[in-house]
Simulated assay, not measured.
Amino acid sequence: MNRDRFKFRVWDKIGDQYYPASVFCASDLADPDDSTVVEQCTGLKDRDGKLIYEGDIVSFRSRGLFFKGTVVWTQEEVPGEINLGGFGIRLPEDQEYEFMDYSRDRDSLEVIGNIHEK
């Protein structure tokens, strides 16, 4: 089993920085206040070996085209998202894409930022 899938990080809105979830108690993670955002790891790593979390902005190449989107939690396939088995990549509305072929496309995933640090 991939234990990375059960890792979390916490964005502190007041301090404008990330903290590992280990510095918070479980009740804080289960019921975060308005000053924090809890983000779960997808269990996947990008092409450079960096863990991919909710809120990360990723780029990837598929079928000869480059795409960029935000990693989000999704319960179902939604137009504009690529299903990652619970996680998806929300693409900008001007990009159309139907399916991500993991055997080919996953190796090109690269974390290029996150929604908090721009």
Score class of each variant (00 low, 15 high):
3 R>N: 00
106 R>I: 15
49 G>L: 03
2 N>M: 03
37 V>K: 10
92 P>D: 13
65 L>W: 00
78 V>F: 14
76 E>N: 04
64 G>Q: 02
12 D>L: 06
18 Y>N: 01
71 V>I: 13
106 R>T: 10
89 I>L: 13
47 R>C: 02
100 M>Q: 09
10 V>P: 03
103 S>P: 11
47 R>L: 07
61 R>T: 02
18 Y>W: 11
103 S>Q: 14
22 S>P: 03
48 D>V: 00
113 G>Q: 11
55 G>A: 02
101 D>F: 09
23 V>C: 06
26 A>N: 14
98 E>G: 08
26 A>Q: 14
71 V>S: 01
109 L>I: 13
32 P>G: 06
96 E>G: 13
89 I>D: 07
60 F>E: 02
76 E>C: 05
23 V>E: 04
17 Q>T: 09
20 P>I: 01
78 V>N: 05
99 F>L: 12
86 G>E: 06
82 I>Q: 11
116 H>R: 11
47 R>F: 01
56 D>P: 06
111 V>Q: 10
107 D>V: 15
12 D>G: 04
99 F>W: 09
16 D>T: 12
73 W>F: 01
72 V>M: 02
65 L>A: 09
47 R>G: 03
46 D>Y: 03
19 Y>V: 08
74 T>I: 13
106 R>L: 11
117 E>H: 15
42 T>N: 08
49 G>K: 07
116 H>V: 11
87 F>V: 13
84 L>G: 14
89 I>P: 10
3 R>I: 11
82 I>P: 00
110 E>M: 07
45 K>P: 01
94 D>Y: 15
88 G>W: 11
46 D>T: 09
109 L>P: 02
109 L>A: 06
86 G>Y: 12
42 T>G: 10
26 A>G: 07
97 Y>I: 15
42 T>D: 07
20 P>A: 04
85 G>S: 14
50 K>G: 03
95 Q>G: 05
39 E>N: 10
70 T>I: 12
36 T>A: 03
19 Y>F: 15
20 P>M: 07
39 E>K: 04
112 I>Y: 12
53 Y>P: 05
50 K>E: 08
96 E>I: 15
74 T>C: 01
37 V>L: 07
65 L>H: 04
64 G>S: 04
33 D>T: 14
47 R>H: 01
99 F>D: 13
104 R>V: 15
21 A>G: 08
114 N>R: 12
40 Q>G: 06
110 E>Q: 13
63 R>P: 00
112 I>C: 09
1 M>G: 01
95 Q>A: 12
112 I>A: 09
51 L>P: 01
93 E>C: 14
112 I>R: 07
84 L>Q: 10
98 E>S: 13
34 D>C: 13
61 R>D: 01
58 V>R: 00
84 L>A: 11
25 C>P: 09
71 V>N: 01
68 K>V: 09
85 G>P: 05
85 G>Y: 03
47 R>P: 00
72 V>L: 10
107 D>H: 06
10 V>K: 11
112 I>H: 09
34 D>L: 14
113 G>S: 14
37 V>Q: 08
66 F>Y: 05
30 A>Y: 07
14 I>W: 01
64 G>V: 03
11 W>R: 03
19 Y>K: 05
21 A>C: 06
62 S>K: 00
112 I>F: 08
